[in-house]
Design a binder for these strands. Sequence first.
RNA 1: GGGCCCGUAGUGUAGCCCGGUUUAACACGCCUGCCUGUCACGCAGGAGAUCGAGGGUUCAAAUCCCUUCGGGCCCGCCA
Length: 597
Amino acid sequence: MKRSHYCGDVRATDTDKEVQLLGWVHRRRDHGGLIFIDLRDRSGLVQVVFNGDDKKLLAEAEKLRIEFVLEIKGKVVKRTPETINKNIKTGEIEIAANYLEILNTSKTPPIEIADPTNEPDEMVRLRYRYLDLRKDKMRENLIYRHKIIKAMSDYMDNKGFLEIETPFLTKSTPEGSRDFLVPSRLNPGRFYALPQSPQLFKQLLMVSGMEKYFQVVRCFRDEDLRADRQPEFTQLDIEMSFVGRDDVISVIEGLLEHSLKALEKDIDQYRGKIIPLISLPFPRLSWEDAMNRFGSDKPDLRFGMELIDISDLVAGTECAIFAKTVKSGGVVKCLNIKQKKLSRAELEKFEELAKKLGAKGLAWMVLESDGPKSPIAKFFKEHELELIFKKAQAETGDILLFAADKFEMACNVLGSVRMELGKKLNLIDANSFKFAWIIDFPLFEYSETEKRWVSRHHPFTSPQGTLDDIEERFLKDPSSLKAQAYDLVLNGVEIGGGSIRIHRRDIQEKVFKILGLPDKEVQLRFNFLLEALEYGAPPHGGIALGLDRLVMMLAGMESIRDVIAFPKTQSALCPLTGAPDVVDPHQLKEAHIRIAA
RNA sequence: GGGCCCGUAGUGUAGCCCGGUUUAACACGCCUGCCUGUCACGCAGGAGAUCGAGGGUUCAAAUCCCUUCGGGCCCGCCA
């Protein structure tokens, strides 16, 4: 049984041809003696007519219901001008059926496949995912995803990269996210871990002399879920030998340019999608600039409203909160909301948000024609206010929001407020795609919970500078050490990150030491890496792109789940299969596992 | 671990604030009948809901209170 055409591909040029179609009943319009069926397959819709000339066939067609699976044979006929349907690709023709076989019937589906406006509760969508995936939106998203990943693979191949698979059953490493563990039946009491990323294997492949590696690979992290985070997700993982930061960056820029262009070819398979126009090279911002100007290490560059640092202007004022903050090494920053009205209640909402994020408060000034209305204006002298207004380019009708805190806290708080304002005040053009590189990240950050310095990227990231430099600067101020790391950001979302790696044992050991990892632990967990670095490891570096997130952004979706065929709920459950589930006691016994009750 | 929002026929919603004229409404879908040019077909009729679950307040609870379950968004977490 073979089809002659896909439903969506039949055209006026096929007129008078006998065709054979396979598909699902999308909609039916039963006029009694005349029945229309919209037949759907992956390619789209075509109208099939049972015109009543053949009474037996018509009687059979009367049995048809939504989502029945059919084999249809018939003749392609041109529609009369007044019956042409411009809304579908096949609207100039229809199929005059002369044969119908019902290959399968269908219960009434809990999801209205033909109605794009009716989107059921996500629980229903995931429970009946195979039906949800029949809808245009999801089908188009999955095709779009396939096309872009295929284009990426082709590009990598053309550039001489080898796709090499790395193990899923691997070793748990300290640092980083929580591992998913897999018990080893053959080795009682021992566990594999699913990889958080193929990081160490791709480095070992560089030691192996593979030079250019890539992999479209699943990664696993047992952390709490978000709209853009799933416990398993897909990366385009890349590693190269003998490269520096700019080499990696230019590969990715070329990759994205190529892949987005390739999407244009198949645009009719995912109508409604925008193919972003991008211009190379992407802007680069140092981490510090990104924090200073946008209050985020993944700034959304689709709108302005940058943060303004007024620390030097308030240090000597009588505004105690501001002056004290600056004196103790913190910063005072503000946002200028140009010519927008916000009620006192709305301003208080933003203060609430700031406090939730850990700020002590959020001060505001409403610049009215008769002067600034503000709880804190009285602490400033006239000329002090004027300097602040000048720096913030504030004029009557503007509103200023202030945060005073340690550098990162003040930036993050105003950065979040900025994003909320951007959404609330409609400053964001949903059709624009702003890529940017964030570079010169700090190598370490201090973990308050662990009371020690931890890697901001990962412990294999090469520091900027020489070994002596590193020792000296670490002793003086660990936060001043910069990493040879880079993140790719799109519209305020981190879609990739990478670094030049450490390829010398002595430096790697030094970093482990700084991180406070006991020698024994290092020996146990990372000895294989340290050893490998001693056998002619070339300088190398790479990057990984989060493909789910990238596709989500490009496809205009708000959730990563809309570009994953079978995702999990926020509590990491699969409503379709019921995973995770209890297992048979025999299986537990074989895995040498006892459940603590 | 914490904050916020949601849960009403198969699906999407209204009703909830301020308890009683509600016999829980509307749209889609479903069922029956009619219909030869529709394409969101139309027309006539019909079935379908213990209002997530449990408890409480009250003469009276979808509506108020408490508990609990499930879903979503966020903070923490995500080298």
